[in-house]
Design a protein around this nucleic acid. Structure first.
Length: 206
DNA sequence: ACCGGGATGTTCT
DNA sequence: GAACATCCCGGTG
């Protein structure tokens, strides 16, 4: 793996913070084809390409965790753009979000599926129920298990090259024609088309 | 294939 | 007490 300078991650270049300052429904499709990296500095790293996301707003979005203001759980949503927000879903699974928007707006993009790129053996070990490699990370809870993301990672700076978890570009641009549809698994604001996928990618959730 | 239910932390009514 | 940004399993067609 070539290192091209101090700000270069294992597999790519950190996203510019500027692209995360727009509203979540604008940022979300821009995160498609970006790469989420975990570890990789001495430890065996894991990485996957983002192929499905959902945008969540704040006061204006009744489906968002931030809709009713800050709580101990959603505290990191109120941090700067590029912060990782990890929460426990249904008391069992972990889910990962990229905080975005203007400072303090508490918007975020939920990462719903990744295409496994590196560290497949570790992913298989942590996802023993996955029968095929395409099933390793095709869901928001599954991808956290596959990458080894948990509550200790809540609040991490995804744009810091020294973070354990990083959000980078590896040269693959976002799709010019992202597929937009309604968000999954929610009961409020169900008609907002804030779910975005890489078109025709097999690794999207359910 | 579709459907029902269990697991269970945090938040809200 | 109930809902929830989920996943897995076992039953039935």
């Amino acid at each position: 793996m070539t290192r091209r300078g101090g700000s270069v991650g294992v597999g790519g270049r950190a996203l510019s913070r500027r692209v995360l300052l727009d509203p979540p429904e604008v940022v979300a499709p821009q995160l498609l084809n970006a790469v989420l990296e975990v570890g990789g500095r001495g430890a065996p790293g894991r990485a996957g390409r983002i192929v499905e996301v959902e945008a969540y707003g704040a006061a204006d979005d009744p489906a968002s965790h931030a809709h009713r203001g800050p709580t101990p759980r959603n505290r990191s949503m109120f941090g700067p753009a590029g912060t990782l927000y990890v929460y426990r879903s249904y008391g069992i699974h972990w889910c990962a979000n990229v905080v975005c928007g203007a400072p303090g707006t508490a918007a975020a993009v939920l990462v719903r599926a990744i295409e496994p790129l590196r560290g497949l053996e570790g992913m298989r070990a942590d996802r023993p129920r996955a029968r095929r490699d395409r099933d390793l990370a095709d869901g928001p809870g599954k991808l956290c298990a596959a990458l080894g993301i948990g509550g200790d990672d809540d609040g991490a700076d995804l744009l810091d090259p020294d973070s354990r978890i990083r959000l980078v570009r590896d040269g693959v641009a976002p799709p010019p024609d992202p597929a937009a549809s309604a968000r999954i698994g929610i009961s409020r604001a169900v008609d907002l088309p804030w779910r975005f996928c890489v078109p025709d990618h097999p690794g999207v959730s359910r």
